[in-house]
Amino acid sequence: MENSRAAWKPLEITPEEAETTADADGLAAYLSTLDDLEGLLAEKKALVLRGFGVAEAELDPVMDHLLPNRLAYVHGNSPRTKVGNNVYTSTEYPAEYVISMHNELSYAHAWPTRLLFTCVVAPASGGATPVVDGTLWLASLDDEVREAFADGVRYTQNLHGGRGLGKSWQDTFETEGREDVEAFLQETEASWTWLRDGGLRVSQDRPSTTRHPLTGDEVWFNQADQWHPAGLGDETAAALAKVLPADELPQNVTFADGSPIPTQYVTQIRDRGLEFAVDVDWHQGDLLLIDNVLVGHGRRSYAGDRRILVAMCN
């Protein structure tokens, strides 16, 4: 396992290697020459585009090459702010917390195939984006854990109607209309209930692994450790348990049959993902493109200002 951990890291591309100028125009020109970006990304799993100094105002032409069909962050569970045409802040969790490894929207019926991160302001220290090979993450788990998850998981969201813990259903689905939410959910094989206080409860059963459509690789592909109370840490989980039962938390997860997931499974999944991850440190103007099926991502804690933008496509 140690040799496997050292065997993969993202492909780094600089202006010198791309034989182009060190600016956004040079990067766009280089990207226009790539005949098979999809194949390159499936082979390398993640690309770091470093040294081009791309500013926030210069992103659109670059994104047109990297993300041909930019998606809205609908049904996302992470706190974000929309700052452009389907461009968002990467996350707004407090700087002192590490965000564990995950594949974006892996709990949903459909997920983006690619994610693009752009560094607008690099942190004073820390703040790397760790990335993990999903096949390695799966292989790192004990047989007992993989077998327990073989039948999948059940995610439950309790989304308030404007006041409460977690996200509102309006923010989550980027709409004020209940009929829009229901139309979306009808396509996702989810079940839902409108609550008397104006909130919405959504439940959905999902597999714990998936296979990449091009490579056929099986990868760990769920967010059980992020949705489980144990993933919040002992103190936070204990505090929440005093206030709310598990089925009323903003988000919760069980095995697909409704039985609880043991805490030790959750901590193993979280810790192994972070252990086998490779950190991508940020410099202003860097970009990181990842295959969202083959690669999980997270965030290290940091000090100082940090502004990383994210966009995604199918």
Rank of each mutant, 00 (worst) to 15 (best):
V243T: 05
Q268M: 05
R300S: 01
S32R: 08
Y93H: 07
G199Q: 02
P123G: 02
L31C: 10
M63D: 08
E275C: 13
P10S: 15
H65S: 14
R300T: 04
T129C: 04
Q284R: 13
E104M: 00
F52E: 04
E235I: 02
L115H: 00
V266W: 03
E58G: 06
D217Q: 14
T14N: 13
L37A: 04
A57I: 15
G164N: 07
S90P: 09
V54A: 04
Q223L: 10
G51A: 02
L59G: 09
M63V: 14
V120L: 03
L34D: 07
E17W: 15
A183H: 05
G296C: 07
S32W: 05
A55D: 01
A190D: 00
P245G: 06
A183C: 01
G296D: 08
A22R: 03
S203W: 12
T156L: 07
V310E: 04
C313A: 10
P123N: 01
M1Y: 11
I290Y: 09
P123V: 00
D281K: 02
V87D: 03
F184C: 00
H75V: 05
T193S: 14
Q157M: 11
P207C: 12
V83W: 02
Y73N: 01
L67C: 02
L34W: 15
E182A: 00
G177F: 07
A42V: 04
I261C: 01
V202P: 06
M63Q: 10
P61R: 15
Q284I: 07
T175Q: 06
E176H: 15
N85L: 09
P262W: 00
Q186Y: 01
C119M: 13
G134W: 07
P68L: 02
Y265K: 09
P213L: 01
R80L: 12
D197A: 05
L138W: 11
T188G: 00
G26L: 02
A311F: 10
L105F: 07
D291I: 01
E38N: 06
E2W: 12
C313M: 15
A7H: 11
L105V: 03
V121Q: 03
T89W: 08
K167E: 00
V278D: 10
E248P: 01
